[in-house]
Design a protein around this nucleic acid. Structure first.
Lengths: 223, 223
DNA sequence: TAGATTGTTAATCGATTAACAATC
DNA sequence: TAGATTGTTAATCGATTAACAATC
């Protein structure tokens, strides 16, 4: 079977061609990748679709179906090789490269993000940390990051090739930063504040919502 | 997926009776609630299904469909009353009560969570903050929270009626805390570490995954 | 071999969307 | 009234699941 020709079979699964994945498939592949990355760190060599299902809360048949649309990655009776599945999914999601992030807000949350591996593990690099508080500017938060002045935003975004802006600022300040990011040409904004951000249609905002997930889990606990 | 519900009328929509919502409906209602809560804070009196769609990334027809399954909450030509929709959804999700949370880890992330409104806005109250570092025990992190000794876990969980444990601890420490929470009878664990937690089937783990959402947004940006 | 797990099919359920009458 | 937006239908698409042969 050739992977050149775009295979459209009505299942929403495609060959390795040039077409876009559906929203659902892309979201699920990203989740598999997260679990696989961590499994790799823990020294796991193989993982079964059932284990992936336990960790991602996606049905194991769905997982096998998602993966088999792109090739035969598994080994019957054994499972999937963690290493090779990671590279396969990265290829499918086209996220094999490095992508630069600018982080806003050097408070508790900003420092927690700067010090975490969550972004780094997936090819994202925090290349700049901004804060409006002049007394924080110049402060070193880890080996490679120093708090920069907010006024340098546009220049830094351009020079460092930043594609994602992450907002760890107070809710009241979030819209202004978002506006400045849009102005500077950033197309993806990750919002950790509670603000409902107004942005042009070509810009994607993702608002982090731990309480939403909690409400949802609680519903099933209570009923 | 561990939650199966009985099939009703084929539309996935139900009357206001006592039945369980489907996973999808419960998840979406929770998201509407988040946006409505913030809209209320901003002084909005009404909101249209289209605005809700913009903020939640759920189709506006889907939103109207979800809501109309429980009653006629909107006013044609006007939209939905924010206040009344908030109480309606809370009623549907049965989250009108208060629920207590125990937070683990008094580092940057733990302090960020303790100082945020995200949980409080949805009826969750952080009633205890634990840390294993003896030098942090007794430290005050805000008006009502003082870092407690990890050894008091079981006693505090029982006395304070804690239903959710939130892990803001290093990845290497997460499994041990999870085990102790399970032991103490907690059924919902919210995991901010990268660890893949092993828990019994009756316990729900939600692992926060900002990088996953980012990967996913990036895919659509790059293609 | 025996046990385990993939890859795949087929049936059903739920989500998505366009369209539009009802009505505020 | 005129414009806006809900509530609802119908068609289609994607997700979910059980089941099981293939095969490691």
């Amino acid at each position: 079977m050739s992977f050149r020709e775009p295979v459209r079979d009505g299942t929403g699964v495609q060959g390795g061609g040039g077409e876009r994945l559906s929203l659902g498939v892309a979201a699920r592949l990203s989740r598999y990748l997260q679990v696989l990355t961590q499994a790799k760190k823990m020294g796991r060599e193989t993982i079964s679709s059932q284990e992936l299902a336990d960790y991602t809360h996606v049905n194991s048949t769905q997982i096998r179906r998602d993966l088999s649309g792109f090739g035969k990655f598994g080994k019957r009776g054994v499972g999937y090789n963690v290493d090779s599945l990671v590279s396969q999914i990265r290829k499918i999601l086209r996220t094999t490269g490095k992508h630069n992030i600018a982080l806003f807000g050097a408070g508790n949350l900003g420092q927690a993000i700067a010090g975490s591996d969550i972004f780094a593990d997936h090819g994202f690099r925090v290349v700049a940390l901004f804060d409006k508080d002049p007394s924080k500017v110049g402060q070193r938060v880890n080996e490679s990051l120093t708090v920069r002045a907010y006024d340098d935003l546009e220049k830094v975004i351009r020079e460092e090739d930043v594609v994602v802006g992450v907002l760890a600022v107070p809710t009241a300040a979030a819209q202004e930063v978002a506006d400045d990011l849009v102005e500077a040409g950033v197309k993806i904004i990750f919002n950790y504040s509670e603000a409902l951000l107004q942005v042009p249609p070509e810009v994607t905002v993702h608002t982090s919502s731990p309480a939403v997930d909690l409400l949802y889990a609680l519903y099933f606990y209570l009923t």
